[in-house]
Design a protein around this nucleic acid. Structure first.
Lengths: 224, 224
DNA sequence: CAGGGTTCTCAGCCGCCTCTCAGGCGCGCT
DNA sequence: AGCGCGCCTGAGAGGCGGCTGAGAACCCTG
C-alpha cells in the first residue's frame, strides 16, 4: 500500500513517515504543494495524506486540481483547527476524510485504513460553479437555492460546461460531446446557449455563461 | 519505446544507455545540447532524458526551444543539486519531471515509465513573461492580477510572442504563425502590435513589447 | 389522434473585429 | 543637421460571428 504524505513541517512529516512505515505502508514525502501535486499525478498511490497549509500551493488547491483532472485517489486532509479553511471546505473540494490537528495517531491510521477499504474516492455528487449547482444523479439544477427547470438538451449542455468550468469550450467540442456529432450547424449551440442564459443567468442578473468571440463559451467559475 | 539521452559526461551517458537498454528501451545518445535538440526535432522519441549542464546549448534551452516549437515529447530533466537552475525552473519550462543528481537508477526508470504511461506531456497551463500571464485553455490574460480583455487576433498574437518570449520575432514569422499567410501586408502586424501595446503595456507603464528596428519584435521576459 | 413540450432550422439584425490606407513621426545613417 | 526609410497610428469601411424570434418537425403522453 503506497501512501504519499504532503506536509511541510519536517518533524511532523518524518514522524508520519516512520509511523506509517511501521504499519507496513510504503511512504513517499513531499514538502510543498507543487511537489505533492507533481508526485500525485504520477499516480500509483493508494491514498494521499495532505496538509492544507503548504508552501507554494495549498493542499486545498492540490486537491481541487487533482479532482479537476479526474484523479480520484482517496485523500485525507489535515489542518490546524483555526485555519483559513474548515472541514466543510475540505470535503466540498473532493477530499474523502478530514482530520484536525492535533490528531491522534491511532485515529489517523484507522481513517487511512477505512479509506483504503472503501477503495476509490467518491466522485463528488454535485457539480458547482459559484452558486450554480447541478446534480447529475438527480437531474436537478439550482441557482443558489432556487431550482431551475431544464430540458434534457439544456441539462446536458450545462453539465458539460460545468465539468469544464472556467475553460473556454469551442462550439465544435460542445457539438461533439453534447450532440455527439461534429458536422452539425454550430448555430444550434448558439440557440441552446441562449436558452440556458434565459434560465440560469438572466432571471438572477448573472453572467456566468460568457461568450468568447471567435473561440467559444466559458462558464465562469465565479472568482475561482 | 525510444529514448533519447542527452548527457555530456561519457561515463554517465554510457551507464544510462546500458541500463535502459537492459530494460528494453531503444536508446540514442547525444553529447551536447545542439545535437540533442537536433535529434529531438527529428521526433520519434517517446521520452527525453535531458541533462541541464551541457556544452553548446543548455538543457534548459533545449527544453524551452522544443516547447516553443510545439513539441510536447515528455522530458525528464537531470541536474546537479547545486546548479544554476532549480526544480521549479525546470518544470516551469515545460519539463515533465525532474531528478537531482545523484539519483537512484531504480527511481529514474520508475519515473520514465510513469511519464510513458501518462502519455503526451502536459502542456504547460500558463505562459508567462514577467508579471504578464496568458492561459490558453481559459483564454485569459493578466498583467499582474489585472485581467486584460483581448480580441481573438490580439490573443493569438500575444500567445505566439509569449511562446517565443525574449526572442526577436520577424513580421514574416508572425504573419505565418498568427495569420497563416505570408504574402499579406506586414502593416497589419504593426497595427496589432499597436493594439496590444495599448492593452498590455501602456496602461501599466510597461514596455514589454519592444520594436527591434529592421528585425521584428521582442516580448521582453522581464529582465531575463 | 390531439396536444404540449422539445429540438432544430432559418433568416435578419447588430455590433465588434479585422484590415486597409494615408499621413506623420522618429531612428539611424551620412 | 538633413534625409530617407521603417514604424506608428487614427479613421473608417466591410465582413463576419453571434444572438434571437419565428416557426417547422419531431416525439412523447394521454
Amino acid at each position: 500500500m503506497r501512501v504519499l504524505v504532503v506536509e511541510d513541517e519536517r518533524r511532523m512529516a518524518a514522524a508520519l513517515q516512520r509511523g506509517l512505515q511501521a504499519e507496513g505502508f510504503a511512504v513517499d514525502l513531499a514538502h510543498d504543494g507543487e511537489e505533492g501535486l507533481h508526485l500525485a499525478r504520477q499516480g500509483d498511490y493508494d491514498v494521499l495524506v495532505l496538509d492544507i497549509m503548504l508552501p507554494r500551493l495549498s493542499g486545498y488547491n492540490v486537491c481541487k486540481q487533482l479532482r479537476a483532472e479526474e484523479n480520484w485517489v482517496p485523500i485525507l486532509m489535515l489542518s490546524a483547527k483555526d485555519g483559513e479553511y474548515d472541514m466543510a471546505d475540505g470535503l466540498d473540494l473532493g477530499a474523502d476524510d478530514y482530520l484536525t490537528k492535533p490528531f491522534s495517531y491511532v485515529v489517523l491510521v484507522a481513517r487511512l485504513r477505512a479509506l483504503l477499504r472503501r477503495g476509490a474516492a467518491r466522485r463528488p455528487a454535485v457539480l458547482r460553479a459559484g452558486d450554480l449547482s447541478l446534480d447529475p444523479a438527480r437531474r436537478k439544477v439550482f441557482r443558489g437555492r432556487t431550482p431551475v427547470e431544464l430540458t434534457p438538451r439544456e441539462f446536458a449542455l450545462l453539465e458539460y460546461l460545468l465539468r469544464r468550468h472556467d475553460e473556454v469550450v469551442s462550439k465544435a467540442e460542445i457539438l461533439e460531446h453534447v450532440w455527439d456529432t461534429f458536422d452539425t450547424d454550430p448555430n444550434v449551440v448558439e440557440v441552446y446557449v441562449g436558452y440556458l442564459r434565459r434560465k440560469i443567468d438572466a432571471p438572477f442578473s448573472r453572467n456566468a455563461l460568457q461568450t468568447v468571440r471567435g473561440a467559444g463559451y466559458r462558464l465562469a467559475g465565479d472568482g475561482g
